[in-house]
Amino acid sequence: MSNERPPGRDPAAILRTALGEAGIEVVASLPDSWLSPLLTALDADPRIRHVKVTREDDALGIAAGTALAGGLGAVVCQNAGLLVGANALAGYVHLHELPLLVVAAQRGDVDDGFYYQAYKGRVVPPVLDAIGVPYHRMRGGADPRLVTAAADQARLHRRPVVLLLDRESLLGEDAR
């Protein structure tokens, strides 16, 4: 049996296309197993400059530099990376006022069966609230409209905006 999905049901392809349509040309990332298909899709897209970093705050800095240049950059990471990058996020929200989009795997929620991930699911949303970063949940499948809406919000508000994606939104129906 083939593992290939029709394009309309391939969440990685949907999200990659949505990022491109949102005008994002630079993506900085760190991996997570749920993000693996999306990262592979980004690597294969010649329209997107995909930069690998060693810490999520550097990914945020790269996206902020893209914004400083007049574009919009994205960060792809696990939600724990938002805890690592909290100082950078706060600086870009409140000090520089630079827009960027974060696409984060929301590990540790009801769809995640690993005890060691659970604290992230509990901690990350209130931390984002405390920092003042708008975030939106993507649940039950990849939603390209939410990607473009969040990118528009980031530009309009001159602030980072975070998307927290559940397992099915990143891995598709197979994740059920």
């Binding site: 040309e25 630079v26 900085a28 400059r49 930069v51 970093v53 705050d57 550097d58 990914a59 945020l60 800095g61 790269i62 996206a63 902020a64 530099g65 893209t66 914004a67 400083l68 240049a69 007049g70 574009g71 950059g73 100082n87 950078a88 706060a90 600086g91 000090l95 520089h96």
Partner: peptide, 18 residues
């Protein structure tokens, strides 16, 4: 300015975009 430690990545993103 702040956050400290972020100037190189900011410069990298800027350079890639220009």
């Amino acid at each position: 300015s702040d956050p400290m430690g972020m100037a190189p990545s900011l410069a990298l993103g800027f350079a890639l975009s220009r």
